[in-house]
Simulated assay, not measured.
Amino acid sequence: MTSFVLVAGAWLGAWAWDDVVKGLRDGGHVAHPLTLSGLAEKRDAPAGPGTHVRDIVDEVERLGLRDVVLVGHSYAGVPVGQAAERIGDRLRRVVLVDANVPVDGESFLSGWPSDPVREAIAAHDGVWPPPDPAGFAGQGLTDEQVTRLLAGATSHPGGTLVEPAVLPRPLGELPGTYIKCLLDGEEPWGAAAELLQSERWNLVGLDTGHWPMFSRPRELARILEAPAGEG
């Protein structure tokens, strides 16, 4: 039986996957949404170097999971991609949902115009605060969904955004699927585009914005449970 471990991006916790988890469990799968240290109900937990990678690996080992699909959304692609190597033969595949791709020696903030994020972290005592509602415009979300998202959002520990990834081998050597949310740009770019040159990775487009667990949870669940993440 496939076990899904789902990790949301910046500002979000396990709760963000509620609708996707229901879809997966209705399909007979095991689904474990995970909150990373420093966020949501774990907001008081320290998040130092490597903490988020250990959060994921420890959860897989604590639950004794096998045949694991590690799912990382947005920021969480960076720790999920690093954790995938560390869980060894427990891994079935990696799924990155409109996510940043880890590159050895590079951080989440590498490779894109991230100066505004760095400035926000510096201005808010080392954390990255959630955006205001206008920051979700054009992403396929209803006003109700934006309200729900922001009601549960917490500031993200800034240190996790600047620490370099550690990858013993390129992520493209592991099996995986990249889900591109088309309202957030039609084509993968940068490290994601390079990752998809691997024969072990496939690309699936989803006609929604950057937060599909809110805007298209049923469609996202169906893609996740497909044998190789086909749309």
Rank of each mutant, 00 (worst) to 15 (best):
residue 177 T to S: 08
residue 109 L to F: 08
residue 127 V to T: 15
residue 110 S to F: 11
residue 122 A to Q: 12
residue 145 Q to P: 06
residue 132 D to V: 14
residue 125 D to C: 01
residue 160 T to V: 08
residue 162 V to Q: 08
residue 157 P to I: 07
residue 184 D to N: 15
residue 177 T to E: 06
residue 160 T to R: 02
residue 140 G to Q: 04
residue 155 S to W: 04
residue 111 G to T: 13
residue 142 T to K: 00
residue 185 G to M: 11
residue 187 E to T: 14
residue 171 L to D: 05
residue 137 A to S: 13
residue 152 G to C: 07
residue 151 A to E: 14
residue 173 E to V: 01
residue 183 L to A: 11
residue 109 L to Y: 06
residue 116 P to Y: 09
residue 108 F to C: 00
residue 158 G to E: 01
residue 170 P to L: 00
residue 148 R to N: 02
residue 148 R to T: 14
residue 135 G to L: 06
residue 145 Q to T: 01
residue 113 P to C: 01
residue 155 S to L: 04
residue 108 F to Q: 02
residue 134 A to G: 15
residue 134 A to W: 14
residue 179 I to Q: 05
residue 121 I to V: 15
residue 151 A to Y: 10
residue 164 P to S: 09
residue 111 G to R: 11
residue 118 R to K: 12
residue 110 S to W: 12
residue 153 A to H: 09
residue 111 G to V: 14
residue 127 V to C: 01
residue 144 E to A: 15
residue 137 A to K: 02
residue 169 R to F: 10
residue 123 A to N: 02
residue 123 A to K: 02
residue 139 Q to F: 06
residue 149 L to K: 01
residue 111 G to Q: 13
residue 117 V to G: 00
residue 163 E to G: 03
residue 178 Y to V: 00
residue 140 G to L: 08
residue 168 P to K: 12
residue 178 Y to M: 00
residue 172 G to L: 09
residue 168 P to D: 15
residue 143 D to M: 06
residue 169 R to S: 13
residue 150 L to Q: 10
residue 160 T to W: 03
residue 126 G to C: 01
residue 158 G to K: 00
residue 177 T to L: 12
residue 112 W to G: 03
residue 122 A to F: 07
residue 134 A to E: 15
residue 153 A to Y: 11
residue 181 C to R: 00
residue 161 L to C: 02
residue 145 Q to V: 05
residue 113 P to I: 00
residue 128 W to Q: 02
residue 110 S to L: 11
residue 155 S to P: 15
residue 170 P to W: 04
residue 131 P to E: 03
residue 119 E to V: 11
residue 134 A to Y: 14
residue 173 E to C: 04
residue 139 Q to R: 06
residue 163 E to M: 04
